[in-house]
């Protein structure tokens, strides 16, 4: 099991979205990805706080992108998932898969 327990549902979703976005994972892109893929609309505040928290846990880190004029000179943060982040996702997925195993008769095959 992961050292800090399993990541929460929202944390997992954000981690996955960041991974999917590859090198383009800045906050607004993560929001759009979550909306598009998972139908999950997040408040800005909740997203930023969750990212901060996952940074403290060591699941994500960010690098600063050079400021652009349309952002009024404000920098942009690009997020990436750390190896620890990948590891907790893997552990969590494995645990879930073990739990799902054998339950097809109940749910049917996923599409």
């Amino acid at each position: 099991m992961a050292p800090g327990g399993f990541p929460g549902e929202l944390e997992q979703m954000i981690l996955l979205a960041v991974l999917r976005l590859g090198g383009d994972a800045y906050a607004l892109a993560v929001l759009r990805e979550l909306d598009a893929r998972a139908g999950r609309r997040l408040s800005r505040g909740a997203l930023y706080k969750t990212l901060d928290r996952m940074e403290r846990k060591g699941y994500v880190r960010w690098s600063q992108e050079v400021a652009t004029p349309e952002r009024g000179g404000h920098p942009r943060r690009l997020f990436e998932v750390t190896p620890e982040g990948v590891e907790v996702l893997r552990t969590s997925r494995a645990a879930l898969e073990r739990l799902w195993a054998g339950l097809d008769p109940v749910f049917g095959r996923p599409a």
Binding site: L28, R44, Y48, R71, H74, P75, R76, R77
Partner: peptide
């Protein structure tokens, strides 16, 4: 930077 970048997001 954290705060600055969030303000930047909001501008965008």
């Amino acid at each position: 930077t954290v705060g600055d970048s969030i303000v930047g997001d909001a501008r965008e």
